[in-house]
Design a protein around this nucleic acid. Structure first.
Lengths: 335, 335
DNA sequence: CTGAAAGCGCTTACAG
DNA sequence: CTGAAAGCGCTTACAG
């Protein structure tokens, strides 16, 4: 250990090595549009930067330019599904195409206020609504707040919300297609999880109404006893009962109870879940479900972020009311 | 919109309002240990900061002090389980107690190199090993690299790795307790997922050996046909077969095939999963599983991070070889 | 097309 | 106990 730890190279080092000024280094490395640089100079700067292993300091750049290229996504700790993960990944890819980098913060490990003393993003994407004081904080810090909600929340400000109705429509539509004429929508206890099935239920109802089918009845249970009570009600209904479950976990619980009751599935009752978790493939019977596609949502929220930051996008895809494919039916043995 | 957008207050504004210098503001707000501040001055600064809604600029602070208070965790996109999420949350809480804030980056949305142009953390925690060039990048940028692996990887550098052996031991131990005397370890195809069951298998073997039980046989399957072949082999074994599954999804798939074969569970074959996912509660029969506790791992990785950053911790809990409780048996109907 | 200079908002020796 | 001043590493008008 005789060699002293080498100081990290700065743009001044690159400038010296390339025989140019620091300004020129900055122009080359940032492709500053208002500047034209001779190919020879550009080449020299690039080579020097490469050889020195130069990495610009994000702190200095952000401090001087007054803008950051970081986008921070706030993720509630309960939102840990592969679907959400994929959503974050897709959003990150879209933003990366426009030079924005993404990081996420799992909420509750530290208050937003503290977080902002360590990192200062250009924008914050929230998957669920922020508290008013959190929004204030962002506004005061000059950080754009983008609403990229993954569920239904009452919200007056413009937001990109995953199309819950579309998902409910997909469930109801499939059951109707398969000849189930009495539709019920069932949701269970959502532990530490504020997502409400309102949008999906609405979508299922709209689908049933448009097809002239019987109205969809909503059930929510809190424990096995109340689920059993709900099931008894369904089994009292005439015709073939189609169960839209809020998610696959709920569907699997319903299925377990229906098995217990000895119900004929899918003869008497059909069940369709939501999410396409792996376990659905191995249930008895194997669960039919909907695989949501968060691609359009990711695109929309990336758009919203870019526009909030004043970055123009040539892509013509509209933000908000996307009518794109957002869900695919995965049919197995329960329908 | 007549009022011009107010400039974000700086420490100079606070100093002016409090009638002190900027240095004093910094001393008060950072509780600089080498400085003693009169209560009156302290009070005045705090009040002024509060009234102005002052938030210090992380960029300026980091640039000047040369250190950041941000820790970035790199998460592979396939690691989306509630368990991992909880691990991130716990690690974040521990670090927050020492003034460090955490963010995570879902890998693959952008290369690490690009990410580091937008954010400059003090340390990076990796849940899986980094590429050599990524490690180089961190070293050159002066960013500490902490290995907080969630699985077994060959790794020569010091790292905190989730105790996989302990988990395998818990599975084998439970099956042995329940009277299953022929143990097998089964793992399925891990889609885009480099985690290998080596450590868990080893743990199961060690447990069986210590108890003087028959050696544990390892199976890995790639599709239904090869799983069925494996099952046929097990069913040819004498005695009661105990199946340790790599995770609950695998266990549920095994269970589905065993049902198909009409196997008596848990009479002839017992199955224990790993993870305690919700769906395990609703399988036929309901799945016995192991709930891993990542608390000790989170504590250890937080320790490792603090020590890499030269932050002393009074807490006496040792890093590395934790013998703490890291898994709990959740017994249901398959054992 | 290129360079000298100012300044972003902090922290930290240093002098009082 | 407090303040004046330097400087972290960039970017960006501005002058040439």
């Amino acid at each position: 250990m005789t060699a002293s730890r080498p100081r990290r190279p700065t743009s001044a080092d690159v400038a010296r090595a390339a025989g140019v000024s620091r300004a020129t280094v900055s122009f080359v490395l940032n492709d500053t549009p208002s500047q034209t640089i001779s190919p020879a100079t550009r080449e020299a700067v690039l080579r020097a930067a490469e050889e020195l292993g130069y990495m610009p300091s994000p702190h200095a750049a952000a401090l001087r330019s007054g803008r950051s290229r970081l986008v921070l996504t706030l993720v509630p700790h309960w939102a840990s599904s592969p679907t959400v993960m994929r959503y974050l990944e897709l959003t990150g890819s879209h933003l990366a195409e426009h030079g924005l980098l993404t990081a996420t913060h799992i909420e509750r490990s530290a208050p937003l206020r503290d977080l902002l003393t360590a990192v200062h993003p250009a924008a914050v994407i929230s998957l669920v609504p922020l508290e008013p004081d959190e929004s204030d904080l962002l506004a005061r810090a000059g950080i754009a707040e983008v609403h990229g909600y993954i569920a239904d929340f009452p919200d007056k400000t413009p937001s990109v919300t995953l199309n819950q109705q579309h998902m409910g429509r997909a469930q109801a539509g499939h059951l109707l297609d398969r000849g189930f004429d009495r539709l019920v929508y069932v949701s269970g206890p959502r532990i530490g999880h504020p997502v409400r099935p309102a949008g999906r239920l609405e979508g299922a109802r709209a689908e049933a109404a448009e097809r002239g089918s019987l109205p969809v009845v909503a059930f929510s249970y809190t424990d096995t006893a109340s689920l059993d009570a709900a099931i008894a009600t369904w089994l009292g209904l005439p015709g073939r009962v189609g169960v839209c479950a809020f998610d696959d976990d709920t569907a699997l619980e319903v299925l377990a109870r229906l098995r217990e009751h000895g119900t004929d599935i899918p003869g008497r009752v059909g069940v369709v879940g939501m999410d396409d978790i792996r376990a659905g493939e191995f249930s008895e019977p194997a669960l039919t479900t909907i695989r949501p596609d968060l691609g359009p949502q990711a695109r929309a929220v990336a758009h919203a972020t870019l526009s909030a930051l004043g970055i123009s996008v040539d892509d013509e895809s509209p933000v908000g009311s996307t009518t794109a494919q957002v869900a695919a039916v995965v049919q197995r043995a329960t329908t």
